[in-house]
Design a protein around this nucleic acid. Sequence first.
DNA 1: CTTACTATTATGTACATACATAATAGCATA
DNA 2: TATGCTATTATGTATGTACATAATAGTAAG
Lengths: 230, 230
Amino acid sequence: MAINNWLGVQTEVLKRIHDRTWKPGEIIPRETDLAYEFGCARVTVNRALRALADKGVLDRKRKVGTTVALYPTSKATLKIPLIRKEIEDLGKVYSYKLLKQTQSKFPKEERLPTHLSSSDNLLYIEAIHSSDGEPFVIESRYINQKVVTNLESKVFEKNSPNEWLLANVPYTHGAISFSATNCSAEKSTLLKINPSEAVFQIDRTTFDREQVITNVLLTYHKDYQLQTSL
Amino acid sequence: MAINNWLGVQTEVLKRIHDRTWKPGEIIPRETDLAYEFGCARVTVNRALRALADKGVLDRKRKVGTTVALYPTSKATLKIPLIRKEIEDLGKVYSYKLLKQTQSKFPKEERLPTHLSSSDNLLYIEAIHSSDGEPFVIESRYINQKVVTNLESKVFEKNSPNEWLLANVPYTHGAISFSATNCSAEKSTLLKINPSEAVFQIDRTTFDREQVITNVLLTYHKDYQLQTSL
DNA sequence: CTTACTATTATGTACATACATAATAGCATA
DNA sequence: TATGCTATTATGTATGTACATAATAGTAAG
């Protein structure tokens, strides 16, 4: 019976990997052969296999062929949501408060903002996002004013930098890192937790080509979990 | 000048989004028109736009059209590597040690293993992975022996469950969550850190269709960072 | 005014075909 | 033996064409 759509091909291929007809590391039949077997066009097989290679299930190489990935490089795609949206999606009321806004060439912070040099003309902002009035995450951000020039001084009193930048300053790429740290005394007060409690942090820097647009350190409330699926 | 490959189309589209020719939320010209403008086939435009929609840069809807995503849902794809590979890629020497292996219907752990019920026939394993002799991560795992039946009792003395399962038990999907926690006394000894120091944790459950194969809690050494790019 | 049908439209997919490109193997030459 | 050329091969991509499908708008029937 012919399989005449790429999702069907994908399902069949996954089935064979799963039931070990094709074992990890092994080479699978070439596109032409599979197309003949399934009774469809090679392009259809190509699309299915390409999608699986994107997911990390298969490895493909020109002239060599397609192999079942030895260690399926479990690629989890995690969506980094807007903070407001994340809170609202939980059915909670979102609120935002600006805590600090300073012009600072040499930020007197404990952390070195990644990817930024002290020579940059930086705007430092600290704000807190709350869920039903409870502290949710502290946003601690540097903005490179060499790149972001259309800034009115009072924007961030009402709008969170998180949201304003996303809507107003397009970026080309970014670097992101997740870690755990013992909460500083100052932040623990803001988050209403005990000092040195373990907190989840996201450090993200976004770029416009070579230039850094902004670096943000998000310090989440206790018990925050970042979830996704494989 | 004609753009006659899908990557070229993608680049041009990204350029226009970036220089705000097409603003967030706006609808962009239809495939047919773009194809005409670029001097290529509609299918080529389709491929480029589809790839961007996958990344979250565009939203597409049949009959309605393609819009620039209002909040580019920053999708970070993070690779969950084999622990051994992660360590070796850092140029360090990898070592593994089995700490505990018990048959336990009712695990006497502080944590409830996610997605598992106490009725399952569980094998509990605790092991440590080291980098140049220094503790790197504690693997604390439940294996569902209803599903994983081909287990020899001594496999995990030499092979880490992490690696053995990946190579021997195919899975259909998984759930994963990242969090921060204060390290338990027991684990802090193993990791050679102060008790209640903040540690990064990954909790992962993999499934074979409806059935849980395994649940693992990975507790990383101090200062561990999970990094990726956008 | 509401409901059901119908036409329209933009994206989604399938196919045959053609050519491009990377990697390999084999052969020939120095 | 080593080196470089060449043929081969599997995947990668582009195109014209055709039809599928989802969502909308418009129209007719009750």
